[in-house]
């Protein structure tokens, strides 16, 4: 498949999701009555909203208006904060990016070296310790770990603030929570990717030629281990997004994750659909980038430059 085709497919997925959201919103009935109490709002005001957000005409007309609104960045009106949804979400975005970015760095800082060391000592005591840590980390839900950290550092030791944003100290516990729990999964992936690469015949054959272990690791093991690792990136991005919803709620972090939880509880559909589309866009772009990276790393794929 060519690159253009992949991008086209990305757009197609995006369009599909936008349409699905539209259908789901319409399936629940008149969206205006879902937002406003029809008994306590003047008819004229309701009508004005209908006009403003394109809820007039046939369903198809509404659909066209809907698409055009989204292309213009108008996702509707947040009933919770009385502003347009776009600005509500955008002002929360930096906090989430900061949290997720730091967590991703922590995850890789733990996962790559620990996973590599475990793979190189496969079966040894260190490996078993790492695997145990990984299993425990996997079973420890974000909110339990977060609350445990609060109980330890905020309630007992009174070292760190349990809630809010602002200083570096506020960042420590949420980043630890996401970083550690995702590192538990990532370490396992790194370990198995390297372990699989170590078992390749081409590694054995390089060893038989007397290539040094250092060169074997960097030139034969790592390039092959990168392939499965690249493909799990979307999975990790998704896991980060999911984790931020929970962890931001636990630590009162004013990001998009907490916003979506609040919006769902308040049924603020405009904000929810904006966030959903944003996440969809992120996932689609991630997948596209992964495809690109994979074709750069693996000459066997169809996207790779021809020789």
């Amino acid at each position: 498949m060519t690159l253009a085709l992949r991008i086209l497919r990305g757009f197609l997925s995006l369009w599909l999701i936008v349409t699905l959201v539209f259908v789901a919103l319409r399936a629940t009935g008149d969206p205006i009555t879902a937002i406003f109490d029809p008994d306590n709002t003047p008819k004229a005001a309701l009508e004005a909203y209908r006009q403003q957000w394109g809820y007039t005409g046939t369903v198809f007309d509404q659909y066209l208006v809907y698409i055009s609104n989204i292309l213009h960045g108008e996702f509707g009106f947040s009933s919770m904060s009385n502003r347009d949804a776009y600005s509500v979400v955008m002002e929360r975005l930096p906090a989430t990016l900061q949290l997720v970015g730091c967590s991703a760095l922590l995850m890789m800082a733990i996962g790559i070296p620990v996973g590599a060391v475990a793979a190189l000592n496969s079966g040894g005591r260190l490996d078993r310790f790492v695997m145990t840590f990984s299993t425990v980390g996997f079973a420890l839900p974000n909110f339990v770990l977060g609350l445990a950290l609060i109980l330890l550092f905020s309630v007992n030791l009174r070292l760190l603030p349990s809630n809010g944003i602002g200083t570096a100290a506020h960042l420590i516990m949420p980043v630890l929570t996401i970083g550690i729990s995702k590192a538990a999964i990532f370490t396992r992936f790194v370990r198995s990717a390297i372990l699989d690469a170590l078992k390749l015949t081409c590694v054995t054959s390089a060893r038989a030629r007397g290539v040094s272990e250092w060169q074997i690791f960097w030139h034969h093991v790592i390039p092959n281990a990168m392939l499965p690792l690249v493909t799990i990136t979307p999975l990790l991005v998704g896991a980060m997004v999911a984790a931020s919803a929970v962890v931001e709620t636990v630590f009162g972090w004013p990001g998009v994750g907490r916003l979506i939880v609040e919006s769902v509880a308040q049924r603020d559909l405009a904000v929810v659909q904006m966030i959903v589309m944003m996440i969809a866009l992120v996932m689609i772009v991630t997948n596209l980038l992964v495809d690109l990276a994979y074709s750069k790393l693996d000459p066997r794929t169809a996207l790779a430059p021809a020789h």
């Binding site: 979307p234 998704g238 997004v241 999911a242 919803a245 979506i260 769902v264 659909q273 959903v276 996440i279």
Partner: peptide, 10 residues
Amino acid sequence: SVPFIIISLT
């Protein structure tokens, strides 16, 4: 490709 928790929230 879509995190499941987002689907359930939606």
